[in-house]
Design a protein around this nucleic acid. Sequence first.
DNA 1: ATGAAAGCGCTAACAC
DNA 2: GTGTTAGCGCTTTCAT
Lengths: 341, 341
Amino acid sequence: MGRRSPGTPTLEEVAALAGVGRGTVSRVINNAAGVRDSTRRAVQRAIAELGYVPNLAARSLAGHRADAVALVMTEPDWRLFGEPFFTEIVHAVGDALTDTPVQLLLTLVRTDAERQRFVEYARGGRVDGVLLMSVHAEDPLPDMLAKAGLPTVMLGRRSGDESVTYVDADNAGGARGAVTHLLNGGRGTIAAITGPLDMYVAQCRLRGYREALEQAGRAVRDSLVVEGDDFTEESGRRAMTELIARHPGIDAVFAASDTLAAGALSALRATGRRVPQDVAVIGFDDFHPARPAEPPLTTVRQPLGEIGRTMVRLLLEEMEDSPVAWRHVILRTELVLRESA
Amino acid sequence: MGRRSPGTPTLEEVAALAGVGRGTVSRVINNAAGVRDSTRRAVQRAIAELGYVPNLAARSLAGHRADAVALVMTEPDWRLFGEPFFTEIVHAVGDALTDTPVQLLLTLVRTDAERQRFVEYARGGRVDGVLLMSVHAEDPLPDMLAKAGLPTVMLGRRSGDESVTYVDADNAGGARGAVTHLLNGGRGTIAAITGPLDMYVAQCRLRGYREALEQAGRAVRDSLVVEGDDFTEESGRRAMTELIARHPGIDAVFAASDTLAAGALSALRATGRRVPQDVAVIGFDDFHPARPAEPPLTTVRQPLGEIGRTMVRLLLEEMEDSPVAWRHVILRTELVLRESA
DNA sequence: ATGAAAGCGCTAACAC
DNA sequence: GTGTTAGCGCTTTCAT
């Protein structure tokens, strides 16, 4: 792999051609102050003439920074990769970094071997910080990174007392709002389709559902709650089918994610039933799979764009030798009402 | 960003603790031969004790390699990011690299600024090679990388005489096979929905359609061909609607991609028509959106897994100081017949 | 404002 | 087999 092309010019050659010292060239390429304008131009001319590109390995070694951050997806079953949820976040993070010299690196960590390799990569100083998505409760990666002293920001948290910096949506509050909205609309029997309850996000959303019912003085009936094995459409379909069998008279359904809701709707479509009359969901910005003649859909929007931007902001702050050990940010969700299609 | 934690041990400290020279430690961490077993163990003990992790910047600088490759998506309109096509390729590439020390880095290049930043990243020696996906005809990135002497492998090609190493599916052959299959099934009036014809892949698939008709002695009627603006469902819908208006008596449709086909089917669904009686498509492995009571779907499968693996193989070969300037590989497609659902 | 010099932590070539 | 040494190309004091 002797990759270094033979003709690659170095900073020293640039200095020689421009007739200045190496320090000066370094200042120019780093836009540092304290260089006479004429000198700067001379150096820039030499750079252009030679087609000089800084050697990033050398810069890292001397400067103790990589000018790169990793966005890690730890999704063993990562069909989720293609979900709008991820796409939105990646987009937002990319946008937030667009005006910086920081290169965004997406990496997939599926197996333990890949986890190991990534940790060595990160600890080896190839990135200045790490953004983590879709971390499961038992994933050791966040702690490995934190222990290594790497600035790390998670999307969501693994439990109620997360020790790593994170940005999360107000999942409990959002769910509460959605269910309260259904109650206000006069619905009496509201079922819930939750995500896998070993994930904290699913627990929070279920808690919100319960709290809304309790606040309204309603009983919480366990048989109205079905847990999905994961956040996929298939789980939503199965859960909805189960609910219909258990309670033919359901008024409304609260689904803990857009994908679950999509599955639930497709199950309803298959049966041709007209109840439930309402479906509410916590989802992303552009979710509207409901078709004409289907129940109206209320969406509690997670502010994915803001989540992504906030993650980047926190990460950059942590990279600035910040004295803060960690910080937690919870962003408000937004109830979006839609006309019945 | 002074990231280097103060307590990070260096190779030299490991050597001191183990009571050996730095060269020996280097040999051990690189699994090089020529180290006595007892020495190796002593070094490994010291490594464990200190929690030593090699500084990759220093390794890159001295060793002229990054042990990383980038997989670049140059998709300005990258909703495509979530498409199964991409997911499959990323998966295959990740698998192919799983047993190597090479870290896979996904990067998005949407704007010129991002393109510039990535080129500097790559030329700066942070990756040993680059895999390119979904490159448009006028994209300068492949040439920039090739000119910089970076091993580069493209998925697909920009034109008939591509100068950069690539792996492609036999698009013309696949399309020919699909249309020939429709002809053999007795279809007389076969329409085509193509991709945007400024992309070579779309041209090839259209050529395959034409060749199949010509081989069968049929006339190629321009009015039976509709060009999609892109490879999205929306384009497929529009094209199908247009075709229905032009030729109510269409027998069958050949769609140049799975997404276009999905759009076409949804347009048919909306009209409730029962013709065309057949739809054939070039697509990925798991495409089957046809519903009961819809035309049977013939899929020409692109071997995405093999494409990804082959790309990695070629890239690794190019990284071995290979004397070959470039190489081109075209993989066979496979006709998949499905029962009418 | 600018040049000179001292590393950054590692690999690889060479000596023993 | 193993220690020694000379860089890799840059940033960053420290002089000037």
